[in-house]
Design a protein around this nucleic acid. Structure first.
Lengths: 108, 108
DNA sequence: TTTACACATAACTTGTTGGTTATGGAATCA
DNA sequence: TGATTCCATAACCAACAAGTTATGTGTAAA
């Protein structure tokens, strides 16, 4: 997992409006741009731009049907986020492991 | 967990430089501002500002000792991030549960 | 007690971002 | 075909964010 992929993910989720759209798709399932716009307080172009950012980060998928575009959440795109968190935990714990090792060696 | 707390957390982690500082503190343990500045490619005031943002989000703790300030990572500050991810998963799954319920009721 | 040091804050610059309105292209409907 | 609808993109603007240099404040050292 590269830094830049984490970057796109964290950046995409750092905006509350964008998170709200993603949450809507997670709980409500596939939605059209019009549907998402109706549920938001911002203009349709603004929603489209947010969707483009989410798509870029792999968080949503789009499906064209006639003149409508349906968007759906891609839950597995969140896994780098979990991976990163676990990595931090491992970093943290390894410090204590190192300390423990040191103490063991001093004990001998 | 309020939206605004998620906001501070995601915002704080959305910057790669800030994530790098946090990662350094996770893996290397407590560090002074000078130490962190030495490991970075940016100026000391820039580092101080990033640390202020991380502190605001609860991701780091500061400890004053003479004229130095020591910063350390607060790993548990990441838990709202895990909570949010699990919430998304639950949202997602509840949709299928709802569908299943509907099908069960139709079956009767 | 002056000087130097570690860090924070202020002031400023610049690139980015999140919103807007206007417009364009493709699909549907009359 | 012409009008309408759905969405994306363009052009623009205001606010913000991340960096810089300059300065301030408190502590240690000479």
């Amino acid at each position: 997992m590269t830094t830049s992929s984490h970057d796109a993910l964290f950046k995409a989720l750092s905006d509350p409006t964008r998170r709200a759209i993603f949450e809507t798709l997670c709980s409500g399932g596939e939605q059209t741009v019009g549907g998402l716009t109706a549920q938001s307080h911002i203009s349709q172009p603004a929603v489209s731009k947010h969707l483009a950012v989410l798509k870029q980060a792999g968080l949503v998928l789009d499906r064209h049907e006639g003149r409508q575009t349906h968007y759906s959440a891609q839950l597995q795109a969140l896994s780098p986020l979990l991976d990163w968190t676990h990595q931090m935990k491992r970093f943290w714990e390894s410090r204590f492991d190192d300390l423990e090792d040191l103490l063991k060696r001093m004990d001998q």
